[in-house]
Design a protein around this nucleic acid. Sequence first.
DNA 1: CAGTGGTCTAGACCACCGG
DNA 2: CGGTGGTCTAGACCACTGT
Lengths: 246, 246
Amino acid sequence: MPDVIDPYDFTPRYYQLASILRERIAGGEYQPNQPIPSERQLEELYGVSRTTIRQAIELLMRQGYLYREHGRGTFVSPQKLQKGISELTSFSEDMKQRGLEPGQQILAIDMRQPPEKIRQRLELEASAQEVLYLERLRLGDNIPMGLQTSYTVLPPGQTITPAEVETQGSIYRILQEKFHLIPTEADETLEVALATPREASLLGIAPGSPLLLSERTTYSQYRRVIEFVKIVYRGDRYRYFAKLTR
Amino acid sequence: MPDVIDPYDFTPRYYQLASILRERIAGGEYQPNQPIPSERQLEELYGVSRTTIRQAIELLMRQGYLYREHGRGTFVSPQKLQKGISELTSFSEDMKQRGLEPGQQILAIDMRQPPEKIRQRLELEASAQEVLYLERLRLGDNIPMGLQTSYTVLPPGQTITPAEVETQGSIYRILQEKFHLIPTEADETLEVALATPREASLLGIAPGSPLLLSERTTYSQYRRVIEFVKIVYRGDRYRYFAKLTR
DNA sequence: CAGTGGTCTAGACCACCGG
DNA sequence: CGGTGGTCTAGACCACTGT
């Protein structure tokens, strides 16, 4: 990534600038709680207008890299705040962020009629449409982390093969590359649950052990429900992170 | 709230416009998944520039009221997505959002030297500074929901009296009104825990019952740690909501 | 094609902060 | 006071969508 903005690059200038600044932060060139150059200085430095500068800065603020103080300047966030969290991630991405190697063991994969309760969560008509059902034991560094059950709505007549899931690992990637469906937003709930005998034996814990239960409804860029996912995590191995703002 | 933008109002125009649009959405004037007027039409309608229009729309997008599709238009989000979540809220605000009357029973309140582990979370120097310690049983509609332990960093020499906590209920409000400290960002973790005998008796459950354990570090507008809060929620009464984006 | 949002410019004035 | 970010204008061209 060069340190100048290329007007012939097809990516937006504010995005190029954000990448440059992000690298300077990551490289320690701009230090935590120290100011970056002012907006007028950045105008000079990169030859773009202040509006464009501000777009780049706003992007980096949303990602947690920068913060502003009116009348004082724009500053680098302390490390802790730089982890972009409350971001929509797949299990695989989640594990990688935690420094663990994601893995899986597929227990079931087929096209089926979803039960009524799930059908409503998927916002599907009562008319018969089959969805992809997938049950997987999820691993982090080859150790069972959770048990995942998902119902995914595919374009009519389409399907995903077990082989694709095996090789790609992440359903999100398949959705994006094969069907151009991009997970954009999700509603998630978290609560505690107790392991059923089956869950317990799959996860290698005692029945009745506490679990962290996550239920998530994911929406595509077209605001249609893509999938409903339920994951039970081992209570002793998983912790959920969120970054809150207001 | 009138339906025109008042140039003499001290609040920004984009903010006034966002309020107007939000009310039209809430009032059902703009229907879910239906388009609102285009940016050029809004320019005409409200007599402000397109930049200002876009600032208002971006605000409403972040709040979950609107979504955009390039080349098609700007649309009203379905109801489900309109609940602004992953927002930094106090326990009191959280309960109100759930339609429950927040309450509390103060178990301890004093100024004290925080234990080493907490002191690090508060990013305090080893030098002696006392912080506000508060232990409260938290109620929703007068039923125990959780047990909250908090350590709050106050400006040197300042304190908060039990009477203030009793009457105001929310520490956040006191911090804001008395010290002009505004909770701006927070890092939160969630995991499962099992009730200790003391927690169990206070929450009215059996020892060893599953709990949802939340730990939160809250930052002020100056990026300093304001408080560290630990809450254990009754596993059978509390569910955590999050809205994820990317 | 016309209409939409996405990006960008070159200005302007304001509110806030520090010396 | 000068410098910072906050707001705002009136344009421009581009990329994408539908017909």
